[in-house]
């Protein structure tokens, strides 16, 4: 009897099998088993870290090291154009950047670009998701049509867009598009047409992704929640704002965040669509310009690092608003 009662806590409550049930004296048992438990707990922690090590190594190799290097570069005058040794310059690169007109211009363009495209992608994406959430004849084809822009390689589809907006063969259409380009450039300055194409391309490609993403979100919500809304609410509009949007909040937050980050860090799309003739620089192209074309590694590193706090703040705000702790499913 005593044997069983005394050993129960050591093997049962602690959840470990290392505690020995063969301890000799009853009075010593609880103290001993506690010590055993503490030791085995320590061993578990060591094991946990051992198991984490490969991941930590990999992450520090591909994330921490480059990031740390970039932070270091942003604090120096490192440049291939520099003859002398690299010198630590403190926050001079940051201060210099903030004083240049190009920085403010690229920052403004980036924010406008990110906000405009994200808003449009979200609106279209929700529309697509709601359209696809209900069964109808030919849904598979519509799904394919909506998802294709995302699945198709950007490098190929970008040429489609380039030719759509600047037709290579003279036709009535090309004359019309020429007139459009003239009008847009006339209103917003040279290069505006090209930048408009960047915005359109981003929306076209991204809205398909957000649509499919939110569709997955809708499918994860129990259908009874929508049916209850159908029984109780008057209009689609009510149902959309009072039921669909709140239930989709966590997915919407993530979609906005993904959309904002890709826009903030965009370089490739802008470069490809404008063939490098950049009149409206975003942070990505400006940093590329500074580093690769200008050899100014320090300022370029500083510029791209300035994105980090902005993105972090956005992330925090988004998840505060959209994914509050109470918003988990019942």
């Amino acid at each position: 009897m005593l044997e069983g009662a005394a050993t129960a806590p050591s093997s049962g409550v602690g959840g470990t099998r290392t505690a020995s049930p063969q301890t000799p004296l009853f009075s010593a048992r609880s103290e001993l088993s506690r010590r055993y438990r503490r030791r085995s707990r320590a061993r578990e922690i060591v094991t946990a870290y051992a198991l984490l090590t490969p991941t930590l190594l990999l992450l520090s190799l591909v994330l921490a090291y480059p990031l740390a290097w970039e932070v270091w570069i942003s604090l120096t005058n490192f440049s291939p154009l520099n003859d002398g040794p690299t010198a630590f310059v403190g926050v001079a690169n940051y201060r210099h950047l903030l004083s240049t007109e190009e920085f403010w211009r690229s920052a403004t363009v980036t924010i406008v670009y990110a906000v405009v495209t994200s808003a449009a992608k979200l609106a279209l994406g929700i529309g697509f998701a709601l359209l696809l959430a209900r069964p109808f004849r030919g849904r598979a084809l519509v799904f394919l049509a909506i998802f294709l822009p995302w699945a198709y390689p950007a490098s190929v589809s970008v040429i489609g867009w380039y030719w759509t907006l600047s037709p290579p063969i003279p036709t009535a259409y090309s004359v019309f598009m020429g007139t459009m380009k003239y009008a847009v450039d006339g209103a917003f300055g040279g290069g505006a047409w090209a930048f408009l194409s960047v915005i359109l391309f981003n929306i076209w490609r991204g809205s398909s992704f957000i649509g499919v993403f939110l569709l997955a979100g809708i499918n994860a919500i129990p259908p009874e929640l929508f049916e209850e809304a159908l029984l109780e609410s008057k209009s689609r509009w009510q149902r959309f704002w009072l039921v669909t949007v709140p239930l989709l909040k966590p997915f919407i937050a993530l979609a906005i965040f993904l959309s904002l980050t890709t826009a903030f860090a965009d370089l490739a799309n802008v470069w490809m669509l404008t063939a490098g003739r950049i009149v409206f620089p975003v942070v990505g192209t400006h940093a590329y310009w500074l580093a690769i074309k200008g050899g100014q590694y320090g300022p370029a590193a500083a510029l791209s690092l300035m994105l980090v706090p902005v993105l972090l703040a956005t992330l925090l705000v988004l998840f505060r608003i959209f994914d509050s702790p109470e918003a988990t499913h019942a």
């Binding site: 129990p222 159908l230 988990t328």
Partner: peptide
């Protein structure tokens, strides 16, 4: 459904988490 003057109770409760 909304005009039928009925109220329904579902198996999984269908309460709005928010």
């Amino acid at each position: 459904p909304k005009d039928r003057d009925i109220a329904m109770v579902f198996q999984n409760y269908a309460l709005y988490p928010h």
